[in-house]
């Protein structure tokens, strides 16, 4: 590649992304004009010019497509403009959802790791359970969310637990499948080496299988983080709009508050990306202790 030495590889990766994001924002503004124009025309007085129309489409209270700066304003206000404990604060709603997702993730990790260890070591589990775990990945598991919430609600269990249960249930499949793959990743020669040392199964696990599986754990965790968040959000729908990002989405859709929907959506996306970033950071830390590779 010519001229590659002038710009660092990092800048070369970021510039196109920045350009694409700016292009997207520009298209967004144009889209807002196009989509909101019919409504805006009704609100404007006769004889208003094109400039007025554009200004109107970018500042309506319930636009079909809110302009990016409207969402940014709403985000800033609901994040920083209100006390954190207020049910009008987006920080509060985000925390409600994130806590459920985190609890679910912890659950999924515990269950997924246990199952994976069992499947790798017990042939009966491998043959009987593993096919179901794989098959469940093709099933829209999220569909059971309303039922779980309702049933647990009947038992008097509400709040965090049902949401964490759904988030955990969703997140546990990728962790199990990934870890089974990871724990089986060592090649036969590496296992034979430990056999020549007469190492026991616990040693084989701690010295070989576990370290070898870490390269599979983090990619599965990334999927699990995203799924746990989706699970927590969807689990908030059937309870009616009480609290959480899902509730904000639902309330927004009830009352036609498009700006609020978009703000909640962007917040949810940002949270998901933050979760991924944390996983990647931990991965980088672990990798650094191994010379940069997992």
């Amino acid at each position: 590649m010519r001229g590659g030495r002038l710009s660092s590889p990092r800048a070369g990766a970021i510039l196109p992304l920045v350009v694409v994001i700016f292009a997207l924002i520009a298209i967004w503004y144009l889209g807002a004009v196009a989509l909101n124009a019919p409504q805006a025309r009704d609100q404007l007085a006769e004889g208003a010019g094109f400039r007025d129309l554009v200004a109107q489409t970018w500042s309506m209270e319930r636009p079909v497509l809110p302009a990016p700066h409207q969402i940014a304003t709403e985000l800033a206000e609901s994040l920083f403009g209100r006390p954190i404990t207020s049910p009008r604060s987006l920080v509060y709603h985000t925390w409600v959802t994130v806590s459920a997702a985190l609890a679910g993730l912890a659950l999924a990790l515990a269950l997924g790791l246990t199952l994976a260890i069992g499947i790798v070591h017990v042939r009966l589990l491998d043959r009987s359970l593993m096919p179901w775990v794989i098959a469940s990945q093709t099933v829209p598991v999220l569909a059971i969310a309303p039922m779980v919430v309702v049933v647990l609600g009947n038992l008097g269990i509400t709040g965090l637990v049902p949401k964490a249960a759904i988030a955990g249930y969703l997140a546990f499949f990728p962790i199990t499948v990934g870890m089974v793959k990871g724990l089986r990743a060592p090649d036969p020669l590496q296992i034979d080496l430990l056999r020549t040392y007469d190492a026991g199964p616990v040693q084989v696990f701690s010295l070989l299988r576990w370290p070898a599986s870490l390269g599979f754990l983090f990619p599965s965790l990334r999927i699990a983080v995203a799924l746990a968040l989706v699970g927590a959000i969807v689990a908030e729908l059937p309870t009616g709009a009480q609290a959480g990002l899902g509730a904000r989405l639902l309330a927004g859709s009830y009352y036609g508050q498009t700006v609020q929907i978009w703000a909640a959506l962007l917040m949810a996306s940002a949270t998901s990306l933050l979760g991924l970033a944390v996983v990647s950071m931990v991965e980088a830390l672990v990798a650094r202790r191994r010379g940069g590779r997992l």
């Binding site: 992304l17 994001i21 995203a226 899902g246 859709s253 929907i261 959506l265 949810a268």
Partner: peptide, 27 residues
Amino acid sequence: FLKRGLLPMGNMISAMPIVGIAPIMVM
């Protein structure tokens, strides 16, 4: 250029809770 711009974008969006756009699409 477009590939290097759109791919990280696509990866990012794939990790987002896209089902959340449902209320918007309903509108």
